[in-house]
């Protein structure tokens, strides 16, 4: 889970989830606490889906 996808690709990560922003990859201080939690949950959900998915090469979810 990272904000600069080309770096994740260049270091060889196989399952990549693009995130919100560099200083707050899994949050967004501009949102209300409830909305922010929802954003984080969606991203982690995506990560769990990625972990369950068979991939044959580097994949951005």
């Amino acid at each position: 889970m990272a904000s600069i996808v080309p770096i994740s690709q260049s270091v060889g990560a196989n399952r990549i989830i693009p995130t919100v922003a560099i200083p707050h990859p899994l949050g967004n201080p501009a949102l209300s606490p409830g909305e922010e939690l929802e954003v984080r949950r969606k991203l982690v959900d995506k990560a769990l889906t990625a972990l369950q998915t068979d991939v044959t090469e580097q994949t951005v979810f």
Binding site: H24, P25, L26, G27, L37, R40, R41, L43, V44
Partner: peptide
């Protein structure tokens, strides 16, 4: 948690 999503 904005960096390490323990809560979720």
């Amino acid at each position: 948690d904005r960096v390490l999503p323990v809560d979720v």
